[in-house]
Amino acid sequence: MALLEVKELVTYFPHDKGRVQVVDHVSFTVNERECFGIIGESGCGKSMTATSIMRYTNEVGARIAGGEILFEGRDVLSFNKKQLQDYRGGEVSMIMQNPMSALDPLFTVGDQLIETIRRHTGANKKEAYRKAEEIFTFLGIPTDRMKAYPFELSGGMLQRIAGGIAIGADPKLIIADEPTTALDATVQLQYMQLLKKIQRQTKAAILLISHDIRVIQMMCSRIAVMYAGQIVEEGKTEDIMNKPIHPYTKALLSAANPHAVKVDRISTINGQPPFLLNPASTCRFTDRCEHCTKKCLERNTQMYVGSSIEHLHRCILMAEENEKNEENAADRADERSSEDPGTEERKAAV
């Protein structure tokens, strides 16, 4: 069942000459107990999507211009202050990229965890303390570290604690915005294992945002690929990884080299993503795409159905090719049945 539904979300930053549209008609759903991933390079709008879901847009100077965000069927955009306070941290919690700046340097990490628990579950001091101890044990951190201040702990440990705070109030959805980017490779792996464990234990859904294809691939069952404020491809992880359709997804996958195999030359995506000031509704990857044709520059894009109903993409060329193939296949099927009238008779005989 759908836990979070984002429909045609538009978020922009006001600019002298118009709008910098960082999130442009983005739609996706996160189901209960699912891990959904958003991947894209920096500046593609993946973090702003998360910010919009948490309704922190005003705090960072952005505006939501349209669309809907439904959490368990309730309209998040119409929440009042009180509802928002319960929603943030209670029902949806967030793990930020940099744990050092996400935690308050003036309070011990234990206090910060207890604060979240008490605010959202109404537990008294003792109960909250006991729950915090449980969470620390769950995270694999000795409970005497609860009295430590953030500067006394390593980045990996702090990020674990940030994860602990995120599950403190038993939320239904955890938004993890680049949770492993600031961590080392070995610690990264441990953290992914912890996130998996959190998901199993708390039965929360996770919205994982990252630019690292490896992280997304390990965690998520479904992925959305974002580019220049739009989702350009969406589908099951194995479909995206094995049968990518959009040229951007293909380029991203070939540039990543997740297995660290030996290569003579690293494949890259040349050029830069476009600046999103009053963006056109034609394809935004044209400058960097090797397949780009005149059609791409003229026609507006939309989401097309790819190999299966769940696999969507935004490439005009691929959609046309797909259509042609389907027509051909249909033609061939017609031909076969007309050429060989014996088949049906034989079938009837069987």
Partner: peptide, 8 residues
């Protein structure tokens, strides 16, 4: 840096 730029 991002994956695509890293390669460059």
């Amino acid at each position: 840096l991002d994956v695509s730029v890293r390669g460059q």
